[in-house]
Amino acid sequence: MNVFRLLGDISHLLAIIILLLKIWKTRSCAGISGRSQVLFAVVYTARYLDLFTSYISAYNSIMKLVFLAASYGTIYLMFIKFKASYDHNHDTFRIEFLILPCVLLSLLINHEFSPLEILWTFSIYLESVAILPQLFMVSKTGEAESITSHYLFALGSYRALYILNWIYRYYAESHYDVIAIVAGIVQTVLYCDFFYLYITKGIYGQ
């Protein structure tokens, strides 16, 4: 563990908590892409199956459970409890165009052709594009509530911090994982446009 990865995990946790609070407090999921949230639940489910097979640390196991619980909790709030506030009309990104290529790519490019490793690779590829429906929705509505933009900023920062973690681990532990690094760079680059808007003029209330 290093400070970059710890800050990244905290930023990730913060993003998920901000989102849950936003939906719970405002009792509305307006402006939030349910499709992206479904993709995140798929990402964590596919990636954290090793909860049952390999123990890394208490921190690792607890965080995996928290991320799984929070992502399914968000889906419950969006599609069941506050389903009336879900903005179907603007959440239209075709997620099958994200899932299928990730499935194919994970079968072609992976570290080991085993079920758990393929699922992990699929989750890495899918996570890198999982935010697209949300970014697409924000661009369609032309704005985002300030709380939603803070959510996106924290979520985008998490993987940017992980890139610093990978640089650190390469030099300090000569450990690197090309698949995670390339996907993490793609994921962070997708936020660049949003980061620019968030930092220059706070995209809410445009």
């Binding site: 390999s54 991320f67 080991e112």
Partner: peptide, 10 residues
């Protein structure tokens, strides 16, 4: 190549 199989990151 790094020691695969064990992904210690979230």
């Amino acid at each position: 190549d790094p020691d695969q199989g064990l992904h210690d990151e979230l």
